[in-house]
């Protein structure tokens, strides 16, 4: 395992963008078919939406805090790249950090600040309420997510993502850490402000943190959300689904295939799950998910210590 150069960077970013577009297209198809539209229009929805937003004029609000508003949007485009930096693609990670798992956790915590800044910057009531809703929901998913991330690290006795992948040579961690995996998937939806955990950007708030976003700014944030979803899935694949390991195909391709399958499952599940309001979800997070994740961690620790 080494640290990759510019070509590895391009490869990782390219694969990430590809996975994100596929997820957005899949969602487009399901949404179009649910409303009786054509699947083809759904498939190209990410592109038509991008073209529409690129031509749209920026909406201005009174006394907006532009610096903070734009930083929020730009940051959501950067964070997914920081996340995939620690993902080993075809044997090399861009930044094969010894503390890769904590690095990923830090990146997803920065999303807290960015989404709130998006809501604050517009100087609009809906945006601000959306920002606070997101933070309230984040309190519910983040702690279980942190403990869920700890489980594979404990089992691999390393915080380096490539070590965690290597430790799953015989058995994928998802087999004996199902709870941690489910919590991780929920966390991915959470920091992507997406699906059941998107009350901060919900339609009952006129879009919440997205309410006043228009044109390229909105495109950046929407793309950022799908990139976050894809980057989170790629990390989940590395931590729980054996990373790039698999027969016949090269490592990079296996990673992409697994990531896209996981994304597909998330996209399909999204339409079957209700929106989890923060006031409800907080209690679910702290009274069910957190103890369940701690128990999972206990099982993992006992297995690791017993196996020594």
């Amino acid at each position: 395992m080494g640290t990759g150069g510019p070509s590895a960077a391009l490869l990782a970013v390219g694969l990430l963008a590809l996975a994100a577009v596929m997820a957005a297209s899949a969602h487009g198809v399901l949404a179009e078919r649910a409303s009786g539209g054509s699947a083809a229009r759904g498939l190209t929805r990410p592109f038509s939406e991008a073209a529409r937003l690129l031509r749209q004029r920026r909406r201005a609000t009174v006394a907006a805090d532009r610096l903070l508003w734009r930083s929020g949007g730009a940051g959501l485009g950067v964070i997914p790249l920081l996340m995939v930096a620690v993902v080993p693609v075809g044997g090399t990670a861009l930044f094969d950090s010894a503390v890769g798992v904590v690095w990923f956790n830090t990146a997803d915590v920065i999303v807290w600040a960015l989404v709130w800044l998006l809501g604050w910057g517009a100087n609009s009531t809906y945006g601000l309420v959306g920002g606070y809703r997101f933070l309230a929901g984040a309190l519910g998913y983040e702690l279980p997510l942190m403990f869920a991330l700890t489980a594979p690290a404990v089992a691999a006795a390393s915080l380096r993502v490539s070590d965690v992948v290597a430790a799953q040579r015989d058995l994928w961690f998802v087999v004996w850490m199902p709870v941690a995996f489910v919590v991780m998937c929920l966390g991915i939806a959470g920091f992507s402000v997406w699906g059941p955990l998107s009350p901060g950007a919900a339609t009952d708030l006129a879009g919440g943190v997205l309410a006043e976003l228009s044109g390229p700014d909105r495109l950046l944030v929407q793309a950022g959300r799908y990139l976050l979803l894809a980057a989170g899935s790629a990390v989940a694949v590395c931590l729980f689904l054996g990373g790039g390991s698999g027969p016949l195909l090269p490592e990079g391709l296996w990673l992409l295939v697994k990531t896209v399958v996981l994304l597909g499952v998330l996209v399909v599940l999204r339409r079957r799950l209700p929106l989890l309001r923060p006031d409800r979800f907080l209690e679910i997070g702290w009274l069910i998910l957190l103890p369940a994740t701690l128990l999972q961690l206990l099982v993992v620790s006992v297995v690791v210590v017993g196996g020594r």
Binding site: V102, W103, N105, T106, V109, I110, W112, A113
Partner: peptide, 13 residues
């Protein structure tokens, strides 16, 4: 990394 994690979270709270 943990400094960044803690502090950004703290500011959001």
């Amino acid at each position: 990394v943990i400094t960044i994690l803690m502090m950004v979270m703290e500011m959001a709270i």
